[in-house]
Design a protein around this nucleic acid. Structure first.
Length: 736
DNA sequence: GGAATGGCACTTTTT
DNA sequence: GTGCCATTCC
């Protein structure tokens, strides 16, 4: 393992870095935390560090463990590492937490009573399994939705807690304190069907490393260096897993974690910001490198974002400086509009203008807080004929036909996969209903065999009658034939045969609905993609772990996505609509998460602004159509927190935060506690505008003409001729 | 066993 | 306003 770098020479890839980045890369040994602000070259540091460790002869490719959160990040890192090394980066221990754990767990599955061919369940399967098992509990699904119970279990798994570790105090809120029992049952069922959910991949593997020192020692010998991306997003179990692997007896832990506490936006799914805040205590002697030179955004954007995030208390502290001298840029625009339609219109117009000025559409994004907000913009962009795509909608592997087809494959590959079998047993219709299925379940339980075996036995004994008899026999036959074909003719041919023979393809061919042809097309694509894998097992592993199919719409279109979805991306121009109290920050987060929730929302706002390279346009509307009814809204507190010197305000000045503060909250039941203590008191109630009296005829931009029926300060109730009775703010109507 | 109707609830999302 | 569920009816 000699160094490939000539002595006394600084390799080219290091010369292209700034001093902090270089420090982060050349500090190869010992624990290192790289606090990388938005746009400071985080990925570059990670990938260069990876290459540097190899090229300087410190480790061989398979002695580095590199962990990411998303497949996308893993893919990107793999590509960039192989570009730096000038060779393909195959066979590396580089992947997502879950993919790496799955790979390890397949080797040691027997320690947790699984076989190495265990199935990885998706969210759908998990929920179905839980629902089945919930039946005897007689828990009212309205009061305790299975999803919520699943959530409780998942959070426990995120924290590394097995059923026996759950204390009574921990389990009181949900389902009358029976969640522990349910959790234990659920784990039992998973074992029976030889399956893991995503949480189990981490949980089981950590358990094995903890209980089997020989296994742990083996990985310690193996992994000399550990690299972790997005460390602020790790949950407790991921942290425990990393710590086990990193602490190699008396040797110093060569672990390098890269992250940004200001971009921690996933606490609601178990991420613990504390992990990054605690790093120096967890890994004594740790060095911390701050990357604060931002090469992405203008000085104005950085100023606005920094000013906003400074309102958070719990931070490691870090300030972004512009990395380029020339990057003054335009101030962040804050635009107030009357209502959500105006907002969509305004953004549409701005985008048309940008397009006319020759800006590429792919460099424009609209970033929203929640999925439901995308529709208004889609409609507007369709009207204007502007190309767009909604990122993060239904993904390929989430479509019903794809899941069905995969379920067929799973049954072939794993006869004990009851969940998959259940999904397909009556798709297409084979005359099996709830009662029939129940009988099969009973039989399977009595004989302690999988569902497929139970069906075979019942068919043999003549226990299945009517239409179902022949149809099920045919299904079992196609499955058996497919298994034979796998070895002989390869998995592509075999699966193609299965989908035809089982009647699944015919089902869609017979379907008259307009989306049926598209579904058939998707199925063809799926079968085609099988060829990319060596065998069926490899393919199934891929779909279980890599649920993101790559988006290959190459058209020059703009993006609409959630703020969460935009993390890690950048655009020249970013629109940030819906900055209103209740929407953003989300009322629910405030209700549930209090100050911590608010800080996370603020980080989300920070993530949003820092996505912009050249221009960020924030907007808020006074009236918003939510679930079919109009609600008035006050501008987000984040608007006010933006430092004035980096902001340019446009639009209706009456529609400022000040105008609204005397009024009660419109979202949820809780008033805004933080606002109340700080700011509400110094605002006098807005007096009514003169001339706004009952009986006066007025015009409203959105609702048209109407007559005032009541006046309360600046709030009017108006009977509109077309839109009916509405409550409006007086500044939004004109006397006619 | 399967379609039709009514009620409710409605962030964020990866693996 | 919409979509998902559960119940009901054929």
């Amino acid at each position: 393992m000699d160094s490939l770098i000539p002595t006394g020479q600084v390799p080219d890839y290091l010369n292209r870095l700034n001093p902090e980045q270089r420090d982060a890369i050349e500090t190869t040994d010992g624990p290192l935390l790289v606090l990388a602000g938005a746009g400071t070259g985080k990925t570059r540091v990670l990938t260069t560090r990876f290459a540097h460790i190899l090229l300087s002869g410190r480790a061989r490719p398979n002695q580095i463990l590199a962990v990411t959160f998303t497949n996308k990040a893993a893919r990107e890192m793999r590509e960039r590492v192989s570009a730096l090394l000038g060779e393909s980066a195959e066979g590396l221990w580089l992947g997502t937490f879950h993919a790496l754990c799955a790979r390890m767990l397949r080797r040691h599955a027997e320690y947790v009573e699984l076989t190495s061919s265990f199935t990885i369940l998706d969210t759908d399967d998990q929920l179905r399994l839980l629902k089945q098992l919930l039946e005897p509990y007689h828990i009212d699904p309205k009061r305790w939705p299975p999803q919520a119970i699943m959530g409780v279990i998942q959070r426990w798994k995120d924290r590394g807690l097995m059923p026996d570790a759950i204390t009574a105090a921990e389990d009181t809120d949900f389902a009358n304190g029976r969640c522990t029992e349910i959790y234990a049952d659920y784990q039992q069922r998973l074992k029976q069907i030889n399956a893991c959910d995503f949480g189990d991949l981490m949980l089981h593997m950590t358990e094995i490393l903890r209980k089997h020192p020989d296994v742990l020692a083996q990985y310690h010998r193996f992994f000399r260096y550990i690299l972790v991306d997005e460390y602020q997003d790790t949950n407790t179990i991921q942290y425990l897993w990393l710590r086990l692997l990193a602490h190699r007896g008396t040797q110093r832990a060569n672990i390098c974690c890269v992250g940004d506490d200001d971009q921690s936006i996933y606490s609601w799914r178990g991420a613990e910001v504390e992990n990054i805040l605690r790093f120096e205590r967890d890994f004594p002697g740790a060095k911390v490198v701050r990357l604060e030179r931002n090469y992405r955004s203008t000085r104005q954007i950085l100023g606005a974002a920094s000013g906003l995030i400074a309102h958070n208390e719990e931070r490691l502290g870090k300030t972004l400086h512009p990395g380029r001298e020339d990057a003054e840029g335009e101030k962040v625009r804050v635009i107030s509009v009357q209502d959500s339609d105006d907002e969509a219109r305004m953004i549409g117009t701005e985008i048309e203008r940008l397009r006319a000025d020759g800006h590429p559409m792919s460099e424009i994004a609209i970033l929203v807080r929640a999925g439901f907000q995308t529709r208004a913009f889609e409609e507007r962009l369709i009207t204007l004929g502007l190309p767009y795509r909604v990122v993060g909608g239904l993904r390929f592997y989430e479509r019903a036909e794809i899941r069905d087809a995969i379920a067929y494959m799973r049954v072939v590959s794993q006869p004990s996969d009851d969940l998959a079998f259940e999904r397909i047993i009556n798709v297409p219709r084979r005359g099996v209903g709830t009662t029939g299925l129940q009988k099969m379940h009973m039989h399977a339980r009595e004989r302690q065999i999988p569902l497929t075996a139970a069906v075979l036995e019942m068919l043999g004994a003549g226990d299945i009658k009517g239409r179902a008899k022949e149809q099920l026999a045919a299904l079992m036959q196609s499955i058996a034939t497919t298994r034979e074909m796998l070895g002989r003719e390869g998995h592509v041919v075999a699966i193609d045969h299965l989908l035809e023979e089982s009647g699944y393809i015919d089902m869609w061919k017979a379907d008259k609905s307009p989306d049926a042809p598209g579904r058939l097309e998707n199925l063809k694509e799926l079968v085609r993609s099988l060829a990319d894998y060596e065998n069926l097992g490899g393919f199934l592993e891929h779909v279980a772990l890599v649920m993101d199919a790559e988006d290959r719409s190459g058209a020059d279109s703009m993006s609409i996505m959630t703020l969460h979805g935009a993390k890690g991306l950048e655009f020249d121009t970013v629109f940030l609509p819906g900055w209103e109290e209740g929407v953003f920050p989300s009322q629910r987060t405030l209700d549930e998460g209090g100050l911590k929730g608010l800080e996370e929302e603020r980080r989300l706002a920070y993530v949003g602004i820092t996505r912009a390279r050249k221009l960020a346009i924030i907007s808020h509307a006074a009236n918003r159509l939510i679930y079919g009814s109009w609600q008035s809204a006050i501008p987000s507190r984040f608007v006010e927190e933006l430092p004035a010197e980096h902001v340019e305000t446009r639009g209706d000045t009456a529609n400022s935060r000040r105008t609204f503060l005397g009024r009660p909250a419109v979202f949820g039941s809780t008033p805004f506690p933080l606002v109340a203590s700080k700011r509400v008191h110094d605002v006098t109630p807005t007096p009514a505008r003169s001339g706004m009296n009952v009986g006066v005829r007025v015009f409203h931009q959105k609702f048209g003409y109407g007559t005032i029926t009541s006046v309360e300060g600046n709030r009017l109730e108006v009977a509109f001729e077309k839109a009916g009775p509405k409550r409006v703010i007086d500044t939004f109507v004109e006397q006619v």
